[in-house]
Design a protein around this nucleic acid. Structure first.
Lengths: 235, 235
DNA sequence: GGTTTTATCGTCAGCCAGACAGCTAGTGGC
DNA sequence: GCCACTAGCTGTCTGGCTGACGATAAAACC
């Protein structure tokens, strides 16, 4: 079975699929599009599409993200998630899909592009519950993306990717609470994040957009890892 | 650009590549094969090969592992690592490679199979240093696999995958020391691993194969996560 | 028997997280 | 203006865990 004889091996289609997560109204939410064509016509699916000739995988993911959401030049986080290639996962042909995870701040309503008949944000609870039937194996992909996000904010500063450029400690705490689905003690959380060097940089400004006493505004600091990590309550 | 029109999109070759790690003689080592055919004929590379029609990705990885090493039915750990698909990474055609990570106990010498002209274990230090030139982008893949292994033994019980079925606390400690390249305090390590519930199960036996006072033998317990994690010294 | 090697048990101080009290400074109702 | 309400911020205490390291135990080698 010489590896160099490439003609003996079957051609695959290669796609990228995007798990785009944000926090909206206290709920971790994912971007979905309504499919305009078969298969799964009319069903909701993760945005994605075929990788083009001569195009890198991450470049394809960035292109699809821009096409589906108009998210260009926005400071979002994009990383490879995993690859799904079970035979039969796409009824048309053998397709291997490289999934990417995108973490974004709360965005304006998405504008459908490409072949999508619609686009919207839905809470991952609904998408993964009984009601939401995602096309292909996209429920599985979404699950993996959600779990990656949940575990990654423990030991990295990635939670700030869900926040606008300037944010308060309380807003950051509500991100953690929404992603993990738990309540955190505001005082201990404050001590933790302000005590980690280079995690948050005060901008000097304050805001009262959450009501109550004015809160200091911060920007993301240079620290990328959280050591020791933020502990997720076991509950 | 309708997604359903599959004929417009270029065909890709899809391969799996394996980062097979073990601990030999106090050094984290990886399995490499010598390529018998162009491109990179005569160079060392990670084992791998094309995914077959109708074959799942993980199944392809398991098949290649068995072909290259005869590692069948052995209790090794296998997980997907990442996918590499830069245009031009394979001079023959557009190839997307799904890398898998395998953690195995110290094994007998590998027996080359398939199209390999040779197979051997080399320490990752040599492979990634100046001397070792791996074919394709395999150095990058190996780096990612090593980093995954290093971080994963922090918070999971995966380090035991490098040990034989029965092992001592000291042997497990030497695994951590070899993978991280640091020295750990034997007393604190002993307290940590024996104090974590369901991590180690005593078999009742003892051994002196490491010299010194006889040590208790243990088997892997049911715990898969280590909470709180084993801390890697920053040095 | 003495030395060496490795395993195992203890002790102690410091750091950190969880629990929780108390105070501050805005908004909005009356 | 006063008062409730909300949210931010500071501080204290305690228990658990880690790192540093002393001491003992049981084998092999000389």
């Amino acid at each position: 079975m010489p590896r160099s004889d490439t003609s003996l091996f079957p051609p695959f289609g290669v796609t990228v699929d995007l798990v785009v997560l944000t926090v909206r109204e206290h709920a971790l939410s994912a971007l979905t599009i309504r499919r305009g064509e078969p298969p799964f016509q009319g069903a909701w699916a993760l945005p994605g599409g075929f990788v083009r000739e001569g195009e890198g995988l991450e470049a394809a993911a960035a292109r699809e993200l821009a096409e589906e959401t108009g998210l260009d030049r926005l400071p979002v986080h994009l990383e490879q998630l995993a690859t799904f290639g079970d035979p039969g996962r796409d009824p048309r042909m053998r397709v291997v899909s490289v999934a990417y995870l995108v973490l974004a701040p709360d965005l304006p309503a998405p504008r459908p592009g490409g072949d999508a008949a619609g686009a919207r944000w839905s809470s991952v609870g609904e998408l993964l519950g009984d009601g939401g039937r995602l096309a292909f194996d996209h429920a599985r992909i979404l699950e993996d993306g959600v779990e990656r996000a949940r575990s990654k904010i423990e030991y990295s500063s990635l939670a700030a990717a869900f926040c606008p450029e300037e944010f308060t400690v309380g807003e950051l705490r509500r991100v953690y609470e929404s992603v993990w689905g738990v309540a955190l003690d505001p005082r201990n959380f404050h001590r933790k994040v302000t005590g980690t060097p280079d995690f948050l940089v005060p901008t000097g400004g304050t805001t009262t957009r959450q009501g109550g006493r004015p809160a200091q505004l911060f920007r993301r600091g240079s620290a990328e890892k959280l050591n020791p990590p933020m502990l997720r309550p076991e509950a």
